[in-house]
Simulated assay, not measured.
Amino acid sequence: MAAETENPPTQNTKRRPDGPLRKGWTTGCCATAATKAAFSALLTGKFADSVTITLPKGEKPVFSLLEPVLSGDFAEVGIIKDAGDDPDVTHGAHIRARVRHLAPGSGTVFRAGAGVGTVTKAGLPIPPGEPAINPAPRAMIEGVLEEVAAAHATHADAEVTISVIGGAEIAKQTWNPRLGIVGGISILGTTGIVHPFSCAAWIASIHRGIDVIRAAGLAHAAACTGSTTEAAVEKRHHLPEIAFIDMGDFAGGVLKYLRHHPIPRLTLAGGFAKMAKLAEGHLDLHSGRSQVDLARIARRALDLGASADVAERIRAGNTAMEALEICAASGIPIGGDIARSAKGVALAEADGKIDIELLVYDRKGNLVGEAGFGS
């Protein structure tokens, strides 16, 4: 998964702060720093007050140490994660590393401590049975072990156990349970830096969800814009939990990835406003990056037999949902028209590689338009 925003929740409601945004550090960055501090203490017999690491792009963050423990054959210490101004569910998490020096030739052995998940399904960057510590953080951790070992003229073979205080509870706010990562959060990050309000991690999580679906051999998946539409689709198709892709606003992120990593059938579902945007060719459905074209909805209504008065009321309205209500009161099947157009956009974006069903819902989860498979 991506480095920028970690373990993104299914619904991110924090408002973006005004002014310049402060960047933060990934869970992988914090785990690396804790590992370096613990291994150094194991070799020297004492902890320093802080630790500095070098990130892949050259940044050198400094971290204060929390609750150091030096006991016999291991050293352990924690670091509090600072995600900057990003609405990251792992902000403030207490990330700990316990390091034991192993016999030469043992390599690096990673363990999942309390609050760190274990992978149970295929399709993720880490195979089933392994701690959910992604490849980039593993490489960073191995790098600091080698750095510290070289400084003390010894070998870098070690057992590294990463834990996160309260990580099992934090994980309930992430996509880990759906991806088959049990017991806690993932240790993530490719650059070590969290860039506030980045879309990259959400899209990366979409990709991992599709990878898991494909690895499980599922022939039918569903991508939904939110919990209301997801519940409606589950009731309609009774798909297993892992078949659902938390699309959010990123229809393009789903469809572009499926173009190169197809599955046989996709149910694409969303609220009327978001599907109206998709029908007009918008692949990012966020309100800040695309707008509903009420004038276009009015023209659609005219084509479907609406009177000029109804069309003008739609054009002068405030929201897409108001337009839907006006059409419903006048018997204008606008939902079906939106569904057909949105399906056409989706099929084109997926390059015709998959069969798509497009479902449009109102705010209460009632189906107001559909374009079925194969039509």
Rank of each mutant, 00 (worst) to 15 (best):
E4P: 10
K36A: 12
E67I: 03
P68F: 11
P68K: 13
S71W: 02
G84V: 01
D86H: 08
I95E: 07
A97K: 00
R98A: 13
A112P: 00
V116S: 01
T120Q: 04
P127K: 15
P137W: 10
R138L: 04
R138K: 10
I141C: 00
A149I: 11
T154R: 11
V164A: 03
A168W: 06
I187G: 00
I187Y: 05
I187C: 02
T191Y: 04
H207E: 13
D211F: 10
G226W: 05
V233N: 01
K235D: 12
L239W: 01
E241C: 07
I242Y: 09
M247P: 08
A251E: 12
L255R: 07
Y257R: 05
R259N: 06
H261C: 04
G271V: 12
H286M: 09
S287W: 13
G288S: 10
Q291C: 10
L294M: 05
I297L: 15
A308Q: 15
D309E: 15
R313T: 14
E322Y: 06
L324R: 04
L324T: 13
A329M: 02
P333M: 06
A348L: 12
D351P: 01
G352I: 02
I354L: 15
D355P: 03
E357I: 09
G365A: 11
A371V: 01
